[in-house]
Simulated scan of single mutants.
Amino acid sequence: MIETENLRLRRPEIDDLDAIHAMRSNPDVVRHLGGRTLSREEAWHRLTRIAGHWALRGYGMFVVVEKHSGAFVGEIGLFDGCRGLSPDFDNAPEAGWILAAAAHGKGYASEAAAAAHRWFAETHGARRSVCIIAPENHASLRVAQKLGYKGFGQVEYQGHPVLMLERIPG
């Protein structure tokens, strides 16, 4: 578990299903992630996929909760997406962050993502990482900028344009 000033980051647990489903079935939350909400079954597949990533790779998406309330905040971490976008993209760990609507605008994405990147560097070595973000997702682009990500291309992913960004540790 990782603790920050306001948050706890931990591996996913079976009891996270309802919170993941609620977050990923909210149209406002997924509007920049292709716009498609998830059914409960798809949320279950999401949960088992992120848990399995930890088993296979030793890292992945953390579940993030508020320290003071224990409320579910979202999913943040680094993972291998195997997206097939380009060798420059697919050969690096991919960062991702998605927050429940109630957690938007509190600075939690930057706080948790910075902690996840520090943890990754300490446990797996400082190395280049990448992320993709919809061009109109200004909040996510601000988080990426705070983390030191810079654009290096644009591609289409699942029928939508996305910016490819990279972070090279200094």
Results as ranks from 00 to 15, higher is better:
R11A: 07
H124Q: 14
I133L: 01
V155L: 01
T48A: 00
R57W: 10
L85F: 06
A102Y: 02
G60A: 10
G107Q: 08
R142W: 04
G151L: 11
P93T: 06
I132L: 08
A22H: 07
G74P: 07
R24M: 14
N91S: 14
G153K: 01
E13D: 12
A115T: 09
H45A: 14
H45L: 15
A114N: 04
V63L: 07
A102G: 02
L47K: 07
G153C: 04
A95P: 00
S140I: 04
E156H: 12
R46E: 14
G96E: 04
I2M: 03
A101N: 10
H45E: 15
F89P: 04
F62P: 02
G153E: 02
G58C: 08
A92R: 14
R118I: 11
E75M: 10
R8H: 11
P135T: 08
L147P: 03
C82R: 14
E122P: 00
A109T: 09
Y149I: 05
V64S: 02
H68I: 10
E42V: 04
A126R: 10
G170P: 15
L7Q: 03
G74Y: 07
E122I: 00
Q158M: 11
E3F: 06
A43E: 01
A121H: 05
G52I: 09
F79W: 13
